[in-house]
Structure formats: structure tokens, C-alpha cells
Design a protein around this nucleic acid. Sequence first.
DNA 1: ATCTTAAATAATAATAATTATTGTTTAGGA
DNA 2: TCCTAAACAATAATTATTATTATTTAAGAT
Lengths: 153, 153
Amino acid sequence: MVLASTQSRLDDFRARCADAGLAATHQRLVIYRTLVESKDHPSPELVFDRVREEIPSISQATVYKNIRTFVDIGLLREVNRLHQTNRLDANLDRHHHLICVRCEKVTDLYDDQLDGARAREESPGGFQVLNYQVEAYGVCPDCQPTEPARIAH
Amino acid sequence: MVLASTQSRLDDFRARCADAGLAATHQRLVIYRTLVESKDHPSPELVFDRVREEIPSISQATVYKNIRTFVDIGLLREVNRLHQTNRLDANLDRHHHLICVRCEKVTDLYDDQLDGARAREESPGGFQVLNYQVEAYGVCPDCQPTEPARIAH
DNA sequence: ATCTTAAATAATAATAATTATTGTTTAGGA
DNA sequence: TCCTAAACAATAATTATTATTATTTAAGAT
């Protein structure tokens, strides 16, 4: 498996911005590089702290706004798409979730094949796994674009 | 597969509260019943709205506090344990995540066995799945309790 | 190289979600 | 019934995020 290097990602940065019609500003480059170099899945607040070491004058809003922009154009991902508010589940039976990326509806997913999901090694990197949970991201029936009605001639 | 009924869960409610040393108050019963009857994985705010239809005088803080209590004693689960703040990932390669339930550290998990995780049916319930992502919850090495040193006699 | 203009930025205000505080009320045992 | 710790309602405070606005800058046209 070959992973993209930091340098190759930065090489692409201007091109990706151009594709999206975004100016490749210094702030954006530093924010993006900081994220590529961060292996710890930082919060926006932590990214702000790190970027501020290089650009002390940058504002929090600029960091938040550009993170959002990067997510929108697919340059970044959120570990968790349901981070804006808690979502509760009183169902303690083993199950997984379907999450609609458009309306954020969550549906239970019972599937014994998914129940068997576990990593090859017992404890990857000394991490003691308590349980594996599968999240299926997609589009729920209500949010699927209906085929536009053909107009008869 | 047999799922616990609403009634059987309510039957257990007092016992579970007693076990945890919690008074089985009317407010708690209504909050819990509302959650058991909600199939839509509601937010605390939505639970508050629903509970308020039965107990108009209840305060938001009571609902939030008891939800937290129920999660703490394992009567409820959060769909997503990382909901308090966004967490970012500039790594677009296919991978999964290890999430420490104690310190909320997130670690990348590459595993081709997990890569194959997908539900039996193509589109469960008409839901169009874009991708499956596995979250492994557990305890990271830093957070694992070290064996208390034996005192030599 | 300079000019122009739309986009980006910094500063700040506002909003939303959650948690803490405090005085009052209630559950459950003596 | 009385007592006391726990739970409650009301409210203030905190944290994360987004919106607003005036200023600055990037990038193409001159």
C-alpha cells in the first residue's frame, strides 16, 4: 500500500484550489499543511492553535471557515459527520447504523455479516478493542433525488 | 433474533435505577420511556421537546442531566461518542478508526479485512450506501490501567 | 508593473449545544 | 409522618461554531 506523501499533497494543493475556484492563499496553505502533518485527528480548535504558531494574526473564524471549505471540496474529511449534536440510542442490542449524509437521519442496521467485522490482529498497536461498530454513510430514501418527470411531447 | 420489548425495558427500569442508586422518579421514567419509544435516534433537544409534551414543567437541564446519567450507567448509548467537537482527517486513503473511550484519541486503522465490511443486501431499506466505515471503540495504550506494582514482603 | 475587483481575511457579534450553579421540592427510608 | 440526601426547575455560564462587516489581498486585465 502506497500512501500519499505530505509533499505530494502540498504539490496538489494549488491545483485542487484552482479546480474549486479558490485562491491559494498563504493562510489556506498553512491550514492545509498543518492538517496533513497532524496525525492525531485534531479538533478545529487545535488546528487553530497550531496554525497560530506560524501565523499569529490568523483568526479563529478563518480557520473554521477554511476547514469547512476543505471538507466541502473533499480535501478533508470529518471523522464523524454527526458531531454537531448528540444522538441517542436506547437500543442496546448489537447493531450498526445507516447515516444519511444529507438529512443526518440515523437508521438501525441489523446485519450478522457486519456483526463479524473485526480487525486481523487481536489488539492493533496495543489498543484494547471493546467493540467494532459499522457506520454506513449514504443517502436515505427520502433524500434520494427522484428521477425528474419526463415531459410528454 | 429477539429484541427487548418496550414493556420489558420499562419493567427493568426501577431495578436498573436501584442498582445504580438512583431514585426512580416520574421524570426519569418519562425520559427513559420516551427514548425507548423513539426509533429515530433523537438529539437531547428533541427528547426534551417530546418529554415536555407529557411534563410541561420539566427543564432542559433535567433532561440533559438524566440522559448523561443514563449513558453513564449503560442504560443508553450515544450513536457517536465524538459528538462534542469536530475531528478532522486529511488522510483520504481508505481506512478505519480506533477511538479511545477514555481520552477520545483517534488512531487510524488500516485493515483489509475491515475494508470488506458491507451489509448482506445491496441497499438496506432503499438506503443508498456510499461507504462503510468501521469504528473500533476501546482503550488506547496510554489509558490502560497499569498493573498495580506488587509490594514485596 | 500597476490597476481593478471579487474573494479572503481579521475582528467581532451572534447562535446553538451543553454544563454548572443555586435555591426549592420530592422520594424513600427511619 | 419526619428527615435527609438526591432530584428538580430556573437560570447563568461555558464551549463550539457560524454570521456579519469592514479591511486587505490574490490574480487576472490593462
